[in-house]
């Protein structure tokens, strides 16, 4: 054939053309993180659930009533990591911990940047360290770590 064949082309864009809402409760929690504030929500009997959920995990009743908690908090359990994995939030030795802010009745998973394992203890007091206001995006990454209260 002397003529080059005509090649038909059409654009095709692979996309995910929708965004997912985090809803009124998780959404409020993430928005509060952007504002540098921790919030919980009232469950059955007035118990404050943190991080907030749309239902009470024990009774399945709908929760209502956002309340500010923290930033001071208590470590309810912890494990010390000497060699952080590449996906961990901190790249120097730190503690994973369950952290129950003042005013809350349940705890959240996060990290404690305590320097050394000997600084860690169940029941120790810690406080939240946020990213600078202009870097916060309304996600868990807004919260850098918790640190021992006396160290702040």
């Amino acid at each position: 054939m002397s003529e080059s064949p005509e090649i038909f082309t059409s654009p095709h864009v692979l996309e995910f053309p929708y965004s997912r809402s985090t809803g009124p409760v998780i959404g409020s929690f993430l928005t509060a993180l952007r504002d540098g504030v921790l919030i919980g929500i009232k469950g059955t009997g007035g118990k404050v659930i943190f991080p907030p959920t749309e239902y009470d995990p024990d009774t399945a009743e709908e929760t209502s009533g956002i309340v500010n908690v923290g930033p001071g908090a208590v470590v309810t359990s912890w494990g010390w990591v000497n060699q952080p994995l590449k996906q961990h939030p901190l790249q120097h030795p730190f503690a994973w911990a369950l952290i129950q802010p003042d005013g809350a009745d349940t705890a959240m998973l996060h990290v404690v940047d305590a320097g050394s394992e000997s600084a860690m203890a169940t029941g120790m007091r810690v406080t939240a360290i946020f990213r600078p206001a202009d870097e916060r995006i309304g996600a868990m990454a807004d919260l850098i770590a918790f640190v021992p209260e006396e160290a702040k």
Binding site: T22, I26, F29, W96, M108, A139, M140
Partner: peptide
């Protein structure tokens, strides 16, 4: 939203 972004490993949990 609250846990997976932190990437805890199985042993740490």
């Amino acid at each position: 939203y609250t846990m997976a972004p932190l990437h805890p490993d199985l042993v740490s949990l």
